[in-house]
Design a protein around this nucleic acid. Structure first.
Length: 821
RNA sequence: GCCCGGAUGGCGAAACCGGUAGACGCGGGGGCCUUAAAAGCCCCUUCCCGCAAGGGGGUGCGGGUUCGAGUCCCGCUCCGGGCACCA
């Protein structure tokens, strides 16, 4: 063996070494009880798929890990846990597909993920790992359900639900995309089933207004605002001719009430049965049946207007005019009051309806189209009599009411409140705020989830399982396949299903639905620091010290569901007296997506990257760093494997610089100045998750440090090792050791930059003539404007553009000179 | 339709608060070293005209503000994402 041969960088041996030493030395272990500056760094935990970790996961985790390691170098005690979102329909469907059992398959997948994650070199304290499918975890998921139940936030109701005939289960609205099941693409049908719901709707206003106080990615906040869908308006009561009942409608345009020429009820509106006249019963029934057959989603996506006349009339409380009452599927029972006042002149949908059914209006109600579609808002050149070619929905500044009795001339901006108040005084209206956000359906008629901890007793009714009897264990079911009955497979296990009533001891039956996977993940951040506790879900002394989470990083695909549900559960637990805070994540940043050749990676496209191969070839440090270098972390980027060589070359040069570092003598002043500039930039950029530019800055420094194979001084290199540590942790530890330092580089803090050392002695000033850059001059750092002008005029290539007497001179200190002639 | 992002060389991208557009990296070209190759190192690489010196253009499109605009304002186009018969 040639002992003179210099040792080259071998990522495999370096990484194996430190992945052995970290657990041995407890480098990543946190003492939760004794942290002085606790920092909770959270990343969204993965669903352990059989395919293993993919590049997207690794990109997300690496970015989060860098942030956590950086915070540690800033002197925080960082708790960065990780676990597995192992319950749920994903895992179950996959098990069904390959004919395995999720109870056997899941641990296998988790094991594979664990191996890959450890190879990636994350600073995770694995002692606090959670697995939502383990009884130690879902016991407490059931406990959370019981707390919400106790607070009256969980209730059961029969609801029209989206039913996927292929997955044979209920889907939440958000799991339906364009009328089809999000997972399998099958067209969804409508079914009526008894379901458990959480009253998240009750928290809509709070969930919305709190957003203003959160330091979250703007995209994420905006998605939540859209989802919550607050709208201000009024509920207006229309009395029904020759009936005691009246119809309440919700509108955001009470100002247009004089243009309300008919009412529309949702076909399933309870009043329909009451008011429909005998002559119209058959047609109304037929229309109702037709609507019921339709699934919920396609009903909402079809815009063709249809409807049926009930034969009944109501009185417009503003104009006193008799208006016909119709039913139509474009009015949804779930929103508002399930009934609207139709203002075809100023609402596109009502306009379409009036025109689509113009003949029916004529024959059934004797109304002309012009009579059905009057104008009540005018602006610009239009007057009260200008005809309407289309629904007029604009509100320019001069928009005002017309054909509206004593409100004529009132600006639209004032009219909403004025009309509402006028109607309110007369007992016909109330101002109302509505939300699009609907209650959270948590029931799943499936196997692979936590059984909902409820028992039904003939004598006592619905009985929550007492907390001390938790968990309601998920039994091993050899046949866990869902069937067409709409009832969970758990109902087939009679031994499990039949239980004595916890209250009276009589015969009772268990709830057979399991809860939504989103409930598992809506509280996992509370469990991590308490993962070792068997006696409680979480201990207030721990949660008050470590929560809310200081930094949460994850994908924006969870912007509405996971993040909104987590906020809701946290608020509910706070209201229940279990927590002292109501917002779980102080700061949230959405990372971007890794794409390949401009397209999202997917198996069908065959462009999925297996990180294992790259880690084996280039090392985890190079791969991590490359992923962070290919684009801004919060925007993602295009994966092209050729790019890895650049960061690998950088790490090779770092290795060489450390290996050959000169320990005698003094460092170079110019290099040290660049070093201090680099320390500042890398610190700023890393804190802002601008990892790509932080890496670029370190590369730039390397180009100075190793220019022309220059031998560097140890003082020039050591701080760089600290800067690179969050990005390439194994290499940094090795270099730290090579340089004779004790302990982990992650306990060494962050190098300080000295403002005095940043200063350049001469600076370059760009010189413009008439705003066009004509050259640049070098002057002393403290040069005055006169010095700079003199230097510029001394340069002929600049001076020749200055024709005539300078009229104006603009000098931006240290940057630029602009001569205007 | 409404609400968020975004558009910059051959490619991924950078640019503080309006102040030298293209840092850093990939790819490409040339050179040094080597018997040779790899590796390493050095130089060049926005486009157009030009042998060069030099000149002109240029950050999706059209206007505007300014001494000066990738950045600000007005009006569009296209791409990504969210919401959507939600009254």
């Amino acid at each position: 063996m040639d002992t003179n041969e210099p040792i080259t960088y071998d990522p495999q041996s370096v990484e194996t070494k430190w992945q052995r030493l970290w657990p041995e030395r407890g480098t990543n272990h946190v003492d939760l009880d004794r942290a002085e500056r606790p920092f909770y760094a959270l990343m969204m935990f993965p669903y352990p798929s059989a395919e293993g970790l993919h590049v997207g996961n690794l990109f997300a985790f690496t970015g989060s890990d860098i942030s956590a390691r950086f915070q540690r170098l800033q002197g925080h005690t960082v708790f960065q846990p990780l676990g597995y979102d192992a319950f749920g329909i994903h895992s179950e469907n996959y098990a069904l597909k390959i004919g395995a059992h999720p109870m056997e398959l899941t641990p296998k997948n988790v094991g594979n993920f664990q191996r890959q994650l450890e190879r990636a070199g994350l600073m995770v304290d694995w002692r606090y790992k959670v697995d939502t499918s383990q009884r130690d975890y879902y016991r407490w998921t059931q406990w959370v359900f019981l707390q919400l139940h106790k607070q009256g936030l969980a209730y059961k109701k029969a609801a029209a639900v989206n039913w996927c005939p292929s997955c044979k289960t209920v889907l939440a609205n958000e799991q339906v995309e364009g009328g089809a099941c999000e997972r399998c693409g099958t067209v969804v049908e409508q079914r009526f089933l008894e379901q458990w719901f959480f009253r998240i709707g009750q928290y809509a206003e709070r969930l919305l207004t709190n957003l203003d106080t959160l330091d979250w990615s703007e995209v994420t906040k905006s998605a939540q605002r859209n989802w919550i869908g607050r709208s201000e308006g009024a509920e207006i009561t229309f009395s029904v001719e020759s009936h005691e009942e009246s119809v309440r409608v919700f509108t955001t345009r009470p100002d247009t009430i004089f243009g309300a020429t008919y009412l529309v009820l949702a076909p399933e509106h309870p009043l329909v049965e009451v008011i429909t006249t005998p002559a119209h019963v058959d047609a109304v029934r037929a229309y109702q049946e037709r609507t019921t057959k339709q699934d919920l989603v396609s009903r909402k996506s079809i815009t063709e207007k249809t409807g049926a006349f009930t034969g009944a009339y109501a009185i417009n409380p503003a104009s006193g005019v008799r208006v016909p009452i119709w039913i139509a599927d474009y009015v949804l029972m779930q929103y508002g009051t399930g009934a609207i006042m139709a203002v075809p002149g100023h609402d596109e949908r009502d306009f379409e309806f009036a025109h689509a059914l113009a003949d029916a209006f004529k024959s059934e109600c004797g109304m002309d189209i012009a009579q059905v579609v009057p104008r009540v808002v005018a602006a610009g050149e239009h007057t009260a009599d200008s005809p309407l070619e289309a629904a007029y929905t604009d509100s320019p500044a001069d928009a005002h009411l017309v054909n509206s009795a004593h409100f004529d001339g009132t600006p639209v901006t004032e009219a909403k409140a004025a009309v509402t108040e006028w109607l309110r005084m007369r007992g016909h209206a109330e101002p109302v705020v509505n939300f699009r956000l609907h209650d959270w359906c948590v029931s799943r008629q499936r196997y692979w989830g936590p059984p909902i901890p409820i028992v039904y007793c003939d004598a006592c009714g619905t009985v929550p399982v007492p907390e001390e009897q938790l968990p309601v264990e998920l039994p091993y079911l050899a046949d866990f396949k869902p069937d067409d009955s709409g009832v969970s497979p758990l109902a087939r296990d009679a031994e499990w299903f039949n239980v004595p009533c916890p209250t009276c001891g009589g015969a009772a039956r268990r709830e057979t639905d399991v809860s939504d996977t989103f409930l598992d993940s809506a509280w996992y951040f509370l469990r991590y620091p308490n993962a070792l506790r068997q006696d409680v879900a979480f201990d207030p002394s721990i949660t008050s010290r470590w929560l809310p989470v200081n930094s949460y990083i994850g994908g924006n695909e969870h912007a509405v569901l996971h993040l909104l549900y987590s906020r809701f559960v946290t608020m509910a637990l706070k209201d229940g007296g279990h927590l002292e805070f109501e917002e779980p994540f102080t700061r949230f940043r959405a990372h971007g997506l890794i794409i390949r050749d401009g397209a999202k990676m997917s198996k069908t496209k065959g462009n999925v990257i297996n990180p294992d191969e790259y880690v084996a070839e280039w090392g985890a440090d190079s791969f991590r760093m490359y992923l962070m270098f290919l684009g801004p972390y919060q925007e993602g980027g295009d994966f092209r494997s050729q790019g890895i060589s650049g960061v690998r070359r950088f790490l090779d040069r770092l290795w060489t610089a450390v290996r050959d570092a000169e320990r005698e003598g003094a460092p170079d002043a110019d290099v040290m100045r660049k070093l201090h500039q680099t320390i500042r930039k890398v610190g700023d950029d890393t804190a802002a998750l601008a990892y790509n530019t932080a890496i670029a800055a370190m590369m730039e420094y390397m180009n100075v440090l190793r220019r022309a194979e220059r031998v560097s001084h140890v003082d020039e290199v050591l701080p760089l090792v600290q800067l690179v540590a969050p990005f390439a942790p194994h290499l940094a530890e090795e270099c730290w050791e090579q340089l004779g330092r004790d302990g982990s580089v992650f306990d060494a803090g962050w190098p300080q930059w000295d403002p005095a050392l940043l200063e350049e002695s001469t600076i370059e000033i760009a010189v413009q003539v008439q705003g066009k850059t004509r050259g640049r001059v070098h002057v002393a750092a403290d040069a005055t404007q006169e010095d700079v002008v003199a230097a510029a005029m001394a340069d002929d290539s600049i001076a020749r553009f200055v024709t005539g007497v300078p009229k104006k001179i603009i000098y931006v200190k240290g940057r630029l000179l602009n001569i205007v002639v």
